[in-house]
Amino acid sequence: MTDDTLTPRLRLSRPVAADLDEVFAIQSDPRVWTHYPSLRHTDPETTIRMMERWERSWSDAGLGSWVARLRDTGEVVGNGGCTLLGGAVWNIGYRIAGDHHGQGLATELAQAGVERARAIAPDRPVIAYLVEHNHASAHVAGKLGLDLVHRAPDAGNPDPGVVRLVYADRPLTPDQLAAALA
């Protein structure tokens, strides 16, 4: 497949409809949503809508989330990459299967996304949009060289005490920050 990207341990592929069951299995696993349990997928329709957003990013910007497979076995172990937000910023995101947490796969996947985003549109900022208590994602953002540029209450979160963080590879304009928070 021409959209495949290889990292040392992963084969990253543009999602196709046949990936739905494996992506849903990851998205519905409570272990991958400990930082934001209300976003856990409880039905495949939620996953289908998410995959449709990924496809729009692929179509509009030439990049979106990949399905991540182990190169040696082909096992689907996650999804992620950079998707376009508001036409203004690349949002790096990922979800790694619970059985594969703590192995550095999120960083490997995220780094590939950042590299591809910078190759496609180097003038577009790369951001990481996360909640403050998601320490693992904040750690990955730091490994990617992103700096904290925004910290505020997470509007719309069912838990009013949650704080939203935005990390970025450069200072953001007000319009870019608005796109990140939309």
Rank of each mutant, 00 (worst) to 15 (best):
Ser57Trp: 10
Gly74His: 14
Glu55Asn: 15
Ser65Lys: 06
Ser59Gly: 09
Arg49Val: 08
Arg49Cys: 07
Tyr94Arg: 00
Gly80Asn: 00
Thr83Met: 11
Tyr94Ala: 12
Ala88Arg: 13
Glu52Met: 05
Gly74Asn: 08
Gly64Pro: 05
Trp58Gly: 13
Thr83Asp: 05
Leu63Phe: 03
Val67Thr: 10
Gly78Cys: 10
Arg49Glu: 04
Thr83Cys: 00
Ser57Asn: 03
Trp90Lys: 02
Thr73Cys: 09
Thr73Arg: 06
Gly64Lys: 01
Leu84Ala: 01
Arg53Phe: 09
Glu55Lys: 11
Asp60Ala: 15
Val76Cys: 04
Val76Gly: 05
Tyr94Ser: 15
Ser59Tyr: 02
Gly87Tyr: 08
Gly64Val: 12
Ile92Ala: 14
Glu45Thr: 10
Leu84Lys: 05
Gly64Ile: 12
Val89Ser: 08
Ser57Glu: 02
Val67Ala: 10
Asp43Gly: 09
Ile92Arg: 14
Met50Trp: 15
Thr73Lys: 09
Val77Arg: 01
Trp66Leu: 07
Ala88Met: 03
Arg40Gly: 06
Trp66Gln: 00
Thr83Glu: 09
Val76Glu: 02
Pro44Ser: 09
Val76Thr: 13
Asn79Pro: 00
Thr47Pro: 05
Asn91Glu: 14
Gly74Val: 04
Glu45His: 12
Cys82Pro: 02
Gly81Leu: 08
Gly93His: 11
Arg40Met: 06
Gly93Trp: 09
Leu84His: 06
Glu45Val: 02
Met51Val: 15
Thr83Asn: 06
Tyr94Val: 10
Gly80Val: 13
Leu70Cys: 07
His41Ser: 13
Leu70His: 00
Val89Gly: 04
Trp58Met: 10
Ala88Glu: 15
Trp54Asp: 04
Gly86Val: 12
Trp90Arg: 08
Asp43Trp: 14
Trp66Lys: 00
Trp66Phe: 12
Glu55Pro: 04
Ile92His: 14
Thr73Leu: 06
Asn79Ala: 09
Arg40Pro: 05
Ser57Pro: 07
Gly74Phe: 08
Trp90Gln: 01
Met51Glu: 00
